[in-house]
Design a protein around this nucleic acid. Structure first.
Length: 888
RNA sequence: GGGCGGUUAGCUCAGUGGUUAGAGCGCUGCGUUGACAUCGCAGAGGUCACUGGUUCAAGUCCAGUAUCGCCCA
């Protein structure tokens, strides 16, 4: 057998195994109508650049589920893809152009597309590569991009269907406008931030020159767009003024004073300027009162000709000038500091401008109703559950969705306008004639659709919809939608709506939401803070398996993950531990094989330690499966970690060494070493695919006669617990042995006994005597004890002389090494132990003397407490005896 | 303004109403056995934010308070 390196070297094997899996075609499921498939459609990363740790988390969790299900024998499809990310990508590409001092308008739509496609293709490639580095077992034969022909056709089809149903309409509405991106945004793409602004009190003179009315506003520069002043109808202060006219200063325009319930009498002066074209609530007031819309801005948020002398000024510069000028005319009453919340573009952080414009909208209410019902009725489950409420809250208050964007990068809206009859042609295929008058003088809408429109169709567009494909029939609906909670509204909610709308079926059965990745102090990761961990670098430094394990083991459903290098490092250490345990086992196997012996793997455990480790293994297997079913991957990781490291490596392997280098012939522990290792590898494979494959192949190589082993751990079966192997008696006895060894080590450390020095020990026990005796060699070696006597309690010498006496749960240990022991200190220690035991007994006595407890607590709890009391009472007696002997 | 979540060891976090509340990192001391120093052994470190309630039993359930964070408007 070749030499196995002392430390695991991930770089050497990762690519090798990925390519092997790929070549074997394991990632592509076989369609078997008799079996229900497990399907995850990957949330497509934006083609804006490299993947970050959030993507690594998504990929890890999905791969964990997919590999687990695949090992459980389900046809498993994990469909990868990327998103064109309309506005985000356009921003990136425009920045790139800006470096060459060119704008997109300079080069034109066609050339811009060329540059953007080039960027997207590069990015798509590097994202796919990174997914492969991460070990993603997704089906590359089905990889999709949102702008691919299939998904694009799905987009046009969905649009046309909705339009024909009257669920898509075009209208002049107030929308959020980003002056930098120069496009409309949906409500979700606006981020509200608290801003320290001002409240300006402005006097509007009455047209009849009988005085003025003072309005309070945060945006004085919009007064050119005012078409009324509104007061509350109940407000006595202004009752007489309703119906009168006021004159807008500077531009000398007359507007009416109106009464509207929406006006809050306590805000400012109780009189509001109404600017329907630039404020959402004003827009509504305007609709109610039939007020004209006066748009005062250009797309770049400079003032337009409606601003009279201020035309051409940037909005904030205009504000300053307007304020100055009003002040000069004595029309500015006062300015107060004012904290208010202002919308910003989620992409570029520019303050958005609410603006009336002609856009396309989806009437979401009818779609939302169905989407609410499927979740309410339990067809779709959201994990963690608390997000269900948040989902309902949003869905129930849903607003129409503005889907048109004044961008170039995206799906062009499939609508053509007739130059002759003015009618619209809405068509899935490219239209050449007006569907009304037949004219060929038609022009396609210039705008593209919101990126999230195509994302909303992703669950079925990737499987071939609107075509009736085999994939769609077999793989839809998916099993789990796994993604971050930050896109619950953007994406998940809309997928549910559109999935139901397009296919009449739910798009997935379970929504699993993970949290955001933060740094080791819980701070958001950002370039600015310099606390970003780049996944590729982390992989190069620690290996993929370590990164994946760090992510999976630290992630709880719906909770943010704090991840520093330390976590990745300790995961790396675990991978290395696993590697070395395996290395040791292989070396032992080789040593045995060299002597010409064959190793039989299937052996019933007879010896205590073998029964114990097999029992523990099966408990862990059961527990891990249960946790995985419940999406508790982090806890599943720790179960395996604790078992592997804390039980198998720390105890079983150490004890097994005695039998591997026996003085006298002993039953070989190799079957159990190999079995536990092999099972653990399979348990761990979904979390750390590479190292487990490497080691598993090594197992396979060592046991070629084990014909049931498939070609890859990927296609091996996931371990299933054998409840028959669970052995409470062996667990109890081994716990006692471990307790003995630990206690002796503790004493050695306390008395600073030299590490290499052997000390004498006597152990007394009753019930567990045979089992403890069977571990005498282990105790001798692991606790550095020699000579060791194990005897029944009745043989206990009454006078032990100077010694440390340990009263344990089911045994006593006496360490009679006279010279070192400080008798009075020992007495003090035993006295403390007596006190502690007495206190606990008192506590238990009280509990067991309580009739309520006896009557109401479940039987097994009462039994347990009674047993504890017996044990403790027994211990107390023994401690008392030791104290009296020490004193005699 | 409405809602949600957090508050547990020095730090970051686990913890299905039922022993003496755990882990990783960090810290202290000691290191020996050809798997592993990416390691081993031992140890220190906690008023589970606070107040009240429900319960035989509360870190866990309920209410309130404080505080931090997020989402929505």
């Amino acid at each position: 057998m070749p030499e196995i390196p002392k430390a695991y070297e991930p770089g050497k094997i990762e690519r090798k195994w990925y390519n092997f899996w790929l070549k074997q075609g394991y990632f592509t499921p076989e369609i078997d109508p008799k079996k229900k498939p497990f399907v995850i459609i990957m949330p497509p990363p934006n083609v804006t650049g490299e993947l970050h740790l959030g993507h690594a988390l998504t990929t890890t969790l999905e791969d964990v589920m997919v590999r687990w299900q695949r090992m459980k024998g389900k046809p498993t499809l994990w469909l990868p893809g990327t998103d064109h990310a309309g506005i985000a990508t356009q921003v990136v590409v425009e920045q790139q152009l800006a470096e060459q001092s060119v704008t997109r308008r300079d080069i034109g739509r066609e050339k811009f597309h060329q540059v953007a496609w080039e960027w997207a293709n590069n990015s798509r490639q590097s994202i796919n590569l990174q997914h492969q580095m991460l070990g993603a077992s997704c089906d590359w034969t089905r990889e999709r991009f949102t702008l691919d022909e299939g998904p694009s056709k799905a987009v046009r089809t969905a649009f046309v269907n909705l339009y024909n149903k009257g669920l898509i309409y075009r209208g002049e509405r107030i929308i959020n406008w980003c002056p930098r991106c120069q496009t409309a945004l949906s409500d979700l793409e606006v981020e509200h931030k608290e801003i320290n602004g001002h409240l300006y009190y402005i006097r509007y003179p009455l047209a009849d020159e009988s005085g003025f009315i003072t309005v309070a506003t945060t945006r004085p520069e919009t007064f050119f767009g005012d078409t009324a002043v509104a007061v509350n109808p109940e407000d006595a202060r202004y009752k007489d003024l309703v119906g009168k006219k006021v004159v807008l200063p500077i531009i000398d325009k007359q507007i009416p004073v109106i009464a509207d319930d929406a006006v809050d009498v306590s805000f400012g002066t109780g009189a509001l300027k109404i600017t329907p074209a630039h404020d959402p609530t004003d827009f509504e007031v305007g609709q109610r009162h039939n007020l004209p819309l006066v748009d005062i801005m250009n797309p770049d948020a400079t003032l337009n000709e409606n601003a009279g002398p201020y035309a051409g000024l940037e909005r904030f510069a205009c504000r300053d000038m307007v304020v100055d000028d009003l002040k000069g005319k004595g029309l500015l009453e006062k300015i107060e500091p004012y904290l208010h919340s202002v919308g910003h573009c989620i992409r570029c952080q520019t303050m958005v401008e609410p603006r009336v414009s002609l856009q396309w909208f989806i009437r979401t209410k009818p779609l939302a109703e169905k989407a609410i019902r499927t979740v309410r009725e339990g067809d779709i489950t959201i994990i963690p559950e608390r997000f269900t409420k948040i989902y309902f809250e949003w869905m129930e208050n849903i607003k129409d969705w503005c889907i048109s964007r004044q961008l170039w990068w995206g799906h062009r809206i499939p609508v053509w306008y007739c130059q002759d009859c003015g009618e619209l042609t809405v068509s899935v295929d490219i239209a050449s004639h007006c569907s009304h008058c037949g004219s060929s003088q038609i022009v396609q809408d210039n705008d593209v659709l919101d990126t999230w429109f195509s994302s909303a169709l992703w669950t079925h567009s990737t499987l071939g919809w609107p075509e009736d494909t085999e994939d769609l029939r077999y793989f839809y609906p998916g099993a789990v939608m796994e993604t971050g909670y930050d896109i619950l509204f953007f994406w998940v909610a809309r997928m549910i709506m559109m999935g139901l709308e397009d296919t009449g079926e739910i798009p997935f059965r379970t929504v699993y939401l993970h949290g955001l990745i933060r740094d080791e102090h819980g701070e958001k990761m950002s370039k600015l803070r310099g606390n970003v961990i780049n996944p590729t670098e982390a992989i190069n430094e620690y290996g993929v398996d370590a990164l994946r394990f760090a992510l999976a083991s630290n992630s709880m459903p719906g909770n943010d993950v704090s991840l520093g290098r330390g976590k990745v490092e300790s995961s790396r250490n675990f991978v290395n531990k696993l590697w070395n345990a395996a290395r040791f086992i292989f070396q032992s196997v080789d040593a045995t094989t060299l002597t010409g012996q064959t190793i039989e793997i299937k052996v019933e455990p007879q010896l205590l330690e073998d029964r114990w480790i097999v029992s523990r293994l099966n408990r862990v297997i059961g527990e891990v499966n249960r946790l995985m079913e419940r999406f508790e991957f982090g806890e599943a990781c720790w179960q395996i970690y604790d078992f592997m490291w804390g039980e198998f490596c720390d105890w079983y392997v150490e004890i097994a060494k005695l039998r591997l280098r026996p003085v006298e012939p002993a039953a070989s522990p190799l079957p159990f070493l190999v079995n536990v290792l092999e099972n653990s590898l399979r348990l761990l494979h979904p979390f750390m695919p590479f190292v487990t494959e490497e080691l598993w192949q090594n197992v396979k190589q060592h046991f070629p006669e084990e014909s049931h082993m498939p070609d890859s751990i990927m296609t091996a079966s996931y371990p299933v617990a054998d409840n028959g192997a669970i052995d409470p008696e062996a667990e109890r006895a081994m716990n006692s042995v471990i307790e003995i060894i630990r206690s002796i080590r503790n004493v050695r450390a306390r008395y600073k006994v030299e590490a290499a020095k052997q000390i004498e020990a006597w152990i007394y026990a009753d019930e567990l005597l045979p089992q403890i005796s069977s571990q005498a060699e282990a105790i001798k070696t692991l606790a550095r004890v020699n000579p060791l006597a194990v005897a029944p309690r009745r043989e206990r010498e009454s006078d032990v002389g100077r010694a440390v006496v340990l009263v344990l749960k089911e045994s006593e240990v006496i360490l009679p090494w006279a010279s070192l022991v400080d008798l009075s200190a020992e007495e003090q220690r035993l006295t403390r132990e007596r006190e502690v035991t007495e206190a606990r007994i008192a506590q238990l006595d009280a509990r067991l003397g309580d009739n309520d407890f006896l009557a109401k607590a479940p039987q097994h709890v009462v039994e347990k407490e009674k047993q504890r009391l017996t044990e403790l009472s027994d211990k107390l007696e023994r401690v008392k005896m030791e104290i009296s002997q020490l004193r005699s």
